[in-house]
Deep mutational scan, measured.
Amino acid sequence: DVEPGKFYKGVVTRIEKYGASINLNEQVRGLLRPRDMISLRLENLNVGDEIIVQAIDVRPEKREIDFKYIP
């Protein structure tokens, strides 16, 4: 289970102007929005990149997770 405040290694699977889709595994994925990137710009991400993200909002009833990137 993903817990708010914990850090996870994820893989960038899609990049859109509203954010990047991050997969932690086949069943768990979430969104990294541009506003939640401290020192990383969306255009510097590539599909397949592995990054460390922090879960900031977990809504299991909607199967949604928001991530934050902290270098």
Rank of each mutant, 00 (worst) to 15 (best):
I22H: 02
S21W: 15
L31H: 05
N44S: 12
A55R: 03
L31F: 12
F7M: 07
I52M: 10
G19Q: 03
R35W: 09
K17V: 13
V11S: 03
E16W: 14
V2Q: 02
I15V: 09
D1N: 14
P34T: 08
R41I: 09
P34Y: 08
P60Q: 09
E61G: 13
G5S: 04
S21G: 05
P34H: 07
E26H: 12
K6D: 02
P34R: 09
E50I: 15
A55E: 02
P4C: 12
S39D: 14
L31I: 13
E16M: 14
N46S: 15
N23I: 12
L32Q: 02
N44E: 15
L45T: 00
R29Q: 15
E3V: 15
Q54T: 06
Y69E: 05
K9F: 08
F7G: 01
K9Q: 07
R41Q: 10
Y69I: 04
L40N: 04
N25T: 12
R14V: 08
F67Y: 02
I65Y: 09
A55D: 00
Y18F: 13
N46Q: 13
P71S: 09
R59D: 10
S39K: 12
K6W: 05
N25W: 11
K62V: 13
I52L: 11
Q54K: 08
A20N: 02
P34F: 09
R29Y: 14
E50Y: 14
K9V: 12
N46A: 14
L31V: 10
R29S: 15
K6V: 08
D1I: 14
L40D: 02
M37E: 03
R29E: 12
M37W: 04
L31K: 06
K68E: 03
Y8N: 00
G5P: 05
N25H: 07
N23D: 12
A20W: 07
V58I: 10
D66M: 13
V11T: 11
N44C: 14
Q27E: 13
D36C: 09
E64N: 05
L31T: 11
Y69V: 04
R33F: 03
P60W: 12
D57P: 03
Y18I: 12
V11R: 10
E26I: 12
F7S: 06
F67H: 02
E64C: 11
G30D: 03
N25F: 08
R63L: 12
K6N: 08
I70S: 09
N25E: 05
N23G: 07
I15D: 00
D66W: 14
E43L: 06
I51E: 00
S21A: 11
L32V: 02
V2G: 04
G19I: 05
R41E: 08
G5C: 12
G19S: 05
K6A: 06
L40Y: 04
N44L: 10
G48N: 05
R35E: 13
D57N: 15
V47Q: 02
D49E: 06
S39L: 11
V2R: 03
K68N: 04
G48R: 01
G48I: 01
N25V: 07
G19K: 03
L24A: 01
I70F: 12
L24R: 00
P4T: 12
V58F: 07
S21L: 15
I51G: 02
I51L: 09
I65N: 02
S39I: 09
A55M: 10
V53M: 05
Y69D: 02
L45P: 00
R33I: 06
S39N: 14
I38H: 13
P34D: 07
K62F: 11
P60L: 10
Y18D: 12
G48V: 04
A20K: 01
N23R: 14
L42P: 04
E3G: 04
R41A: 12
I22K: 02
L24Q: 01
R33H: 07
N46D: 07
I70A: 10
Q54F: 14
R33L: 06
K62M: 12
Q27M: 12
G19H: 07
P71T: 07
I52P: 01
E16R: 12
L45S: 00
L32P: 01
A55K: 00
N44R: 06
E64W: 13
Q54M: 15
N44P: 02
R59C: 07
R35T: 10
V58Y: 10
N25R: 06
I56M: 11
N46K: 14
N44D: 15
V47Y: 03
E26A: 14
N46C: 13
